[in-house]
Design a protein around this nucleic acid. Sequence first.
DNA 1: GTGAATTAGTTTCATATGATACCAAAAGCC
DNA 2: GGCTTTTGGTATCATATGAAACTAATTCAC
Lengths: 153, 153
Amino acid sequence: MSEPELRLDAYLPYRLSVASNAVSGLIARSYQDRFGLSVPQWRLICVLAEDDGLTQGQLVARTVMDKVTVSRAAQGLLKRHLVARSDHQADGRSHVLALTHEGQGLHAEIAPLALAYEAALISGLAPDEVALLKRLLGRLQTAAGQLAGDTPG
Amino acid sequence: MSEPELRLDAYLPYRLSVASNAVSGLIARSYQDRFGLSVPQWRLICVLAEDDGLTQGQLVARTVMDKVTVSRAAQGLLKRHLVARSDHQADGRSHVLALTHEGQGLHAEIAPLALAYEAALISGLAPDEVALLKRLLGRLQTAAGQLAGDTPG
DNA sequence: GTGAATTAGTTTCATATGATACCAAAAGCC
DNA sequence: GGCTTTTGGTATCATATGAAACTAATTCAC
């Protein structure tokens, strides 16, 4: 007995999705309005600022985005001269992306805003709660990845 | 000094989005493959199973989805005779939605699967960790809502 | 070396999403 | 009663997304 009750607002995947949508929507709107950047574009800038000279394939791995998404984001940034492309030394199919000076400037401008958003979002939480939250999110992600691989039942 | 470093994989909104996408993708694929249901459709079924006889407006509030999304999901469910519509007693614009017998059957079939997914996802976590996670997600959601209202910056 | 199978990246296409405009019913206002 | 404003829901449109097909370059097998 005791049917294990399924209530939507207690259902973790739902809660996760709603929270993520709220946060992503906030951030996406902000970057779009202020800098004309999509979230994928911003992610590329962010990764390239950490670690310059990556191929799109590497960016796919780093950002957990689809390669089509990365391709389009890169094209947009190219058009705005925020990143530059150079031929890959050893692989003629591949190109190496790097931030231009202008791209670096934009990153320097946005990064504090991004951090301010994060700070505002977690302002009610204790530092150890934040750390735990990040760890739990990582676990969920890997669990989902494993389940997606198997034939879950 | 000490620029407060922005690393993408330590950035909470990013982590949240990636985790949510992984989980949502897993669930969405499963419901689509097995039952031909979209996530919005499933959410409506779920809410209507909890609490029958709601208008679309009420469903919008309950599911935190756009009214267009709810409208379309409802139409899909109507076409498959999983929900039924009756005129609203007091408001001629509005309709009342309720699960059909068939819809209830489908819900009874999916609910255990949904709970199994949740159980699998959190299988590595302690119960109090899960509780905390849900609470923190709620806090993030409300914080994002507040920030979206203000002019943050 | 030559040819088959992979891989990096783009293009194409089909679908999902939400902003906006829209229609009809309801509520306020006088 | 008439008139405007608001609200429930739908239709239209413009954009975002990813799956699949495709191109070109690379690797592997031999």
